[in-house]
Amino acid sequence: MHFYPTERIALFIDGANLYAASKTLSFDIDYKRLLALFRSKGQLVRALYYTALAEDQEYSSIRPLIDWLDYNGYTMVTKPTKEFVDATGRRKVKGNMDIELAVDAMELAEHLDHLVIFSGDGDFRSLVESLQHKGKRVSVISSLSTNPPMVADELRRQADQFIDLADLQHEIGRTTSDRSQRRRLDNESEATEATEAYDPSDFVET
Rank of each mutant, 00 (worst) to 15 (best):
M1D: 06
F3T: 10
P5D: 07
T6P: 00
T6Y: 14
L11K: 00
D14H: 01
N17G: 06
N17C: 03
Y19N: 12
A20I: 15
Y31N: 04
L35F: 12
A36N: 11
A36G: 05
V45Y: 11
Y50A: 00
L53V: 14
I62E: 10
D67T: 13
W68C: 07
Y74Q: 03
M76C: 03
K79L: 00
P80Q: 06
E83V: 14
V93E: 09
V93N: 05
G95L: 03
D98F: 08
D98I: 01
L101V: 11
L101R: 08
A105W: 06
E107W: 02
L108G: 00
A109E: 15
H114C: 07
V116Q: 06
D123H: 10
D123T: 02
D123I: 03
L127N: 06
V128E: 02
L131K: 02
L131S: 06
S139V: 04
S143V: 05
P148Y: 06
V151L: 08
D153A: 10
R156S: 14
A159L: 08
L165Y: 11
D167G: 07
L168Q: 08
L168D: 08
H170Q: 15
E171W: 12
I172W: 13
R174W: 05
T176F: 10
D178R: 03
R182T: 02
R182V: 01
N187M: 08
E188G: 04
S189R: 14
A194Q: 01
T195H: 01
A197L: 02
A197G: 07
S201N: 04
S201I: 02
D202V: 15
D202S: 09
F203Y: 12
E205G: 11
E205P: 01
